[in-house]
Design a protein around this nucleic acid. Structure first.
Lengths: 218, 218
DNA sequence: TAGATTGTTAATCGATTAACAATC
DNA sequence: TAGATTGTTAATCGATTAACAATC
């Protein structure tokens, strides 16, 4: 019953399939073959079929895949068929920006609380959510069945806060701090990293190496 | 002279090496072996040596790597040894949050302009940067030698804006819109994606599949 | 010189692509 | 039934790890 050993590479692609299927759905497309989808997404049809077959046979020979069905099934695999309660820890610029992002709500990710250590922020509200102090966290997490904590704290404070959050019962951390939390947390806690500065460095690498490559041609 | 064919997997790891070396540097560590570094970073020593040797021999047999030297060399490889001028297109919550991020500045990424299509925002300033209207873009990009555009626009507007930016001379796009720009842009334009919603879905997948796996044990 | 550790080649492992039999 | 397209096995390709000779 339990899926096991699905590779990270496959999981990484699932949300993109989900997005394309959502767009097809909106466009009123009813069925699609791996061949057609492969053209749109610029991946091989073989990869699409292999990826999907990690989770089951969603298609039908001679027909292809029903768009709505496949979209919903991938949604279920991704856990989008239920509500996930989140708190945001760190109500600085990024924390507030994420709290304002209504679009996560549509996929079932509901921000129920916003926390900070700075007393000046206490009571300030963002999109109707008041900023609370972190000492209220243990109770809040239990009462609101919070699964996910978004960490938008400076790296100096992130590790200890992550450990506290886990003590308080948080199951997953969406980590925006520039540090590797997974090395200090139990393995059964999910950590998903968004390292913006690293993303920017990769961009910079590509920019730089592209220029290097073409310098001689000028 | 020109590096070619460095795999994406390697490039993805470079910023992390850079971060660890920066921390060692701050901690006053002078030299480090691939073995020691491998323990800290939880990767194999072999991988570290292989990765680095894509770019040159930075170490010394019997000694290891000089921390400062290696840090600086990786910095150069990543293009962090010069200033990159950026504009942010889309001055909503996320755009403003990114404009407020002083820490990118320290790696040489300088936000010189902030643009939006909404006239209501015209003249509002964020961290001293006034929000401008997009019709000023062509001139602004040329005058300020802007290389990178950060796209924090709703997906409906992202593709056409990306195409305009490229016409205006932008060399790279840091894409926060939920859409695949690379499919509509020339191949020599660098696109680095930050798909927050996809990141959240991967987190949700891991959370869900972990629960599935342990459900039976209860 | 002896010990340590790199740079690099070879072996293994995993992921992607190709091929095709199964089947709608 | 014939045509289309999946599900799945086999072949290829690439990335990671192991091993070790080179060398500081």
């Amino acid at each position: 019953m339990s899926e096991k050993g699905i590779s990270k590479a496959v999981i990484k692609r699932l949300p993109r399939y989900y997005r394309y299927l959502g767009e097809l759905l909106e466009a009123g497309v009813e069925r699609i073959s791996s061949g057609e989808l492969s053209e749109r997404m610029k991946v091989t049809a073989s990869q699409i079929r292999q990826d999907l077959n990690n989770f089951g046979g969603f298609g039908q020979q001679g027909y292809g895949y029903n768009v709505r069905y496949l979209h919903d099934e991938i949604g279920k695999i991704l856990g989008l068929n239920r509500i996930h309660n989140m708190v945001i820890i760190g109500a600085g610029n990024l924390g507030q920006a994420l709290a304002n992002y209504a679009s996560f709500e549509r996929s079932g990710f509901r921000t129920v609380g916003l926390f900070d250590v700075n007393p000046v922020l206490q009571g300030v509200t963002v999109r109707g959510i008041p900023i609370r102090m972190v000492d209220e966290l243990p109770e809040f997490i239990k009462e609101n069945k919070v699964e996910i904590a978004t960490l938008t704290l400076p790296k100096s404070r992130a590790k200890e806060m992550a450990q506290l959050l886990v003590e308080y019962g948080i199951r997953a951390i969406w980590n925006f701090a520039h540090t590797d939390l997974n090395l200090v947390l139990p393995r059964d806690v999910i950590v998903e990293n968004v390292h913006l500065s690293e993303s920017l460095m990769r961009l910079s690498y590509n920019l730089t190496s592209y220029e290097e490559k073409h310098k001689t041609n000028k």
